[in-house]
Design a protein around this nucleic acid. Structure first.
Lengths: 107, 107
DNA sequence: ATTTTGAGAAACCAATCGGTTGCATATATA
DNA sequence: TATATATGCAACCGATTGGTTTCTCAAAAT
């Protein structure tokens, strides 16, 4: 049951849930209406998202509003960071190539 | 067998493989040395990564060098983008709060 | 020509996943 | 107080996952 954030976002339904509650906190029932599954299935996804602290519940009477822990999303961004460095470097290298071609044309 | 990039990076071994070949193209054997599994298990991971076009094989004699398709990694970045907007907005809001406090101190 | 090496494919296995149905519980509402 | 609503939990199920072992094949190396 050791789940991490990457396993959490592997499921398309969970990604959709994350995107929905990023806009505003929502209840399990409200969320379930957006999917072709039972409310219980959505509940299971929510539990997984809570487990890796991507969302947090806020009880309000008999309803529970789930909201996104946006800070946690940064962990994904952090992992991507190392690759961003690479593709930016390659872009700069392409820039240099274009510059070289430009210079050669002038000669 | 419809796999997407998010399922591909869900597995920690696959993330490690991606990080390794991001630095330089590697063979399955060379990769397997970094993990506590068989070469065949690594091969299966490589197949999954190929399926979703995250890596590409380059035959060289009887060896096969796998290299990262860095462009594909941008798809993850693209998904994160929507949340980056949110956390940057919140940061700016915090900035405003701090500015307000500063102004109040001056009065 | 024979042997070693690098790699993929197939068959199998236990564990996990995503879904369901049924039930229990707490809060609103009549 | 009785009923309806919102939610979570447990048990179950078929499909998928990540791993293994065994086998085959092609390309060096001897």
């Amino acid at each position: 049951m050791r789940r991490d954030i990457f396993q959490a976002i592997a499921d398309p339904t969970r990604r959709a849930i994350i995107a929905l509650i990023a806009l505003q906190a929502m209840t399990p029932n409200a969320l379930a209406e957006h999917f072709d599954t039972t409310r219980q299935a959505v509940s299971k996804h929510l539990r997984i998202l809570i487990e890796c602290e991507l969302i947090k519940p806020e009880q309000q009477g008999r309803e529970i509003y789930y909201s996104l822990e946006i800070e946690k999303m940064k962990e994904i961004d952090k992992w991507i960071e190392q690759f961003r460095t690479i593709w930016e470097t390659r872009f700069n290298q392409l820039d240099e190539v274009l510059l070289t071609i430009k210079k050669q044309k002038k000669c």
